[in-house]
C-alpha cells in the first residue's frame, strides 16, 4: 500500500543496490543505536525506539553519510510488508475484548463512534490548519507555494 513512492524520481545517480546483508546491517545498526538512546528519555516523556531510528535514518540520509542505494531495497521491501506486519497488533485485541463491555453495553459502541469521529476530526482539522498556514506564508511572507 505504501509502495506508491517507488515510482518517484530519485535525485541521486543510478547505482547498483548494496548487497542485502549490508542493508540489513545498516538497519540493525540504526536500530541498535536507537535502542541505546531510547531509555535515556524520562518515563513521562517516552520516545520509542522506532521514532529515534526514523530521525536517525533521515539525518544519516540527509547528511549523505548513508546513500540511498545502501538502504533502498530493504526499505521498499519492509514498507511493502507493513500492512501484514500490523496483523498481530490487531489480533492483540483478543486480549482486551472486555473493554467493549466493561462499563456497560454502550461502551463498545461509543468507542467505535469516537474512533470514527476522531478519524474525521484528524483529516479535517489537519487539512484546514495546513490551508491556513499555507495562506499565511503566501499572503504574509509572499512565498511561492507551488509544489512542482
Amino acid at each position: 500500500m505504501a509502495s506508491n513512492q517507488q515510482s518517484a524520481k530519485t535525485t541521486e545517480a543510478e547505482h547498483e543496490p548494496a548487497p542485502i546483508l549490508q542493508q540489513m546491517a545498516i538497519f540493525a545498526c540504526v536500530l541498535f543505536v536507537s535502542s541505546l538512546i531510547s531509555p535515556l528519555f524520562p518515563a513521562s516523556f517516552p520516545v520509542p525506539t522506532p521514532v529515534i531510528g526514523l530521525v536517525l535514518m533521515y539525518v544519516l540520509l540527509a547528511s549523505h553519510a548513508i546513500k540511498l542505494y545502501q538502504v533502498e531495497k530493504m526499505a521498499d521491501f519492509l514498507i511493502s510488508l507493513i500492512a501484514f506486519l500490523f496483523v498481530p497488533s490487531g489480533v492483540q485485541m483478543a486480549n482486551s475484548l472486555n473493554v467493549f463491555t466493561d462499563d456497560g453495553a454502550l461502551t463498545g459502541v461509543m468507542l467505535i463512534v469516537v474512533i470514527v469521529l476522531a478519524t474525521i476530526i484528524l483529516l479535517v482539522v489537519i487539512a484546514y490548519t495546513t490551508a491556513c498556514f499555507m495562506w499565511i506564508s503566501r499572503k504574509v511572507f509572499h512565498k511561492s507555494t507551488d509544489v512542482q
Binding site: 540504526v30 536500530l31 521498499d76 514498507i79
Partner: peptide
Amino acid sequence: LNPATIAFAIPLY
C-alpha cells in the same frame, strides 16, 4: 515493525 517503521525515512528522503 521496528525496522519497517524506520524504513519510512526513505520515502521521506
